[in-house]
């Protein structure tokens, strides 16, 4: 299994907006195999489209996308749904938790669609919640949790299927900087445990925690470089939040 986890080959994505044809992605060729990868760029740079394609939510207009060596660019709705269920975990800016539903039930959701039995679901969901540090709050509803805690529930939901790839779309966009660092620390831990994390952000502060930064502009990869990530250390409560060394 030498095939990289993600292999994009001359991927193009075009949209038609009325008369105009928008080239959201133009001949993007990219390999991702492990790492905490930050995709950066201004709005309209194509980073969201990139995220959708990598996350199998959207298919490229042309070019190929191999996920675990499998060409997913020509797959149908159901096959893509199954791949998302098994291989990819999602974390969104606005958490996307089901309201009036307990944390554990939210985390169980991907397992429900995977057909895992109830008892096994509970066990794994509890384990995932413990992993993100919410072992004591498994029966809380989202409105009883802080923003950071809600995002932790979402991360638990993304890792509960033991998927290899975690897609995070502006995961810290709705959080204060102190909580952002907490979340990034969690991502770094998961990365060091072997998960591949692709995170879309427009904040350089956040990208600094990544091991690799891909900058997009006008649908093309502008720069792509590995870097030594800043270690996310949560400052003690007394100090000013958001200070990084």
């Amino acid at each position: 299994m030498n095939a990289p986890l993600i292999h994009l080959e001359k991927v193009c994505k075009t949209y038609r907006m009325g008369e105009e044809v928008v080239h959201a992605l133009q001949d993007v060729t990219l390999d991702i195999n492990g790492g905490l990868v930050a995709i950066m760029g201004a709005s309209g740079s194509g980073k969201s489209t990139m995220m959708n394609v990598i996350g199998c939510l959207d298919r490229p207009s042309s070019g190929s996308y191999f996920l675990e060596g499998q060409d997913v660019s020509k797959m149908g709705h159901n096959a893509l749904a199954d791949i998302r269920n098994r291989t990819i975990g999602f974390v969104f800016q606005s958490f996307h938790l089901l309201s009036r539903t307990s944390a554990i039930e939210n985390v169980e959701l991907p397992l429900v669609y995977a057909g895992v039995s109830g008892k096994e679901r509970k066990r794994r969901a509890e384990e995932a919640l413990k992993r993100v540090g919410l072992g004591a709050r498994i029966h809380h509803h989202p409105n009883q949790l802080s923003g950071g805690q809600q995002q932790r529930v979402a991360i638990a939901r993304a890792i509960v299927s033991k998927s290899k790839l975690l897609m995070a779309d502006e995961p810290t966009g709705n959080l204060d900087s102190r909580t952002s660092i907490e979340i990034m620390a969690l991502f770094q831990e998961l990365w060091r445990e072997g998960m591949t994390i692709v995170l879309v952000t427009h904040e350089p502060d956040i990208a600094a925690f990544a091991s690799r930064v891909v900058v997009m502009k006008d649908g093309e990869v502008l720069t792509d470089r590995e870097q030594e990530p800043v270690v996310a250390v949560v400052p003690p409560p007394a100090s000013r939040p958001g200070v990084m060394t």
């Binding site: 159901n78 749904a81 199954d82 998302r84 996307h96 959701l109 669609y113 995977a114």
Partner: peptide
């Protein structure tokens, strides 16, 4: 709508 989007993202098929 957002709930439906999420369910689809985490692997719900259309018929589900």
């Amino acid at each position: 709508t957002r709930e439906i989007g999420l369910r689809m993202a985490i692997g719900a098929r259309r018929y589900q």
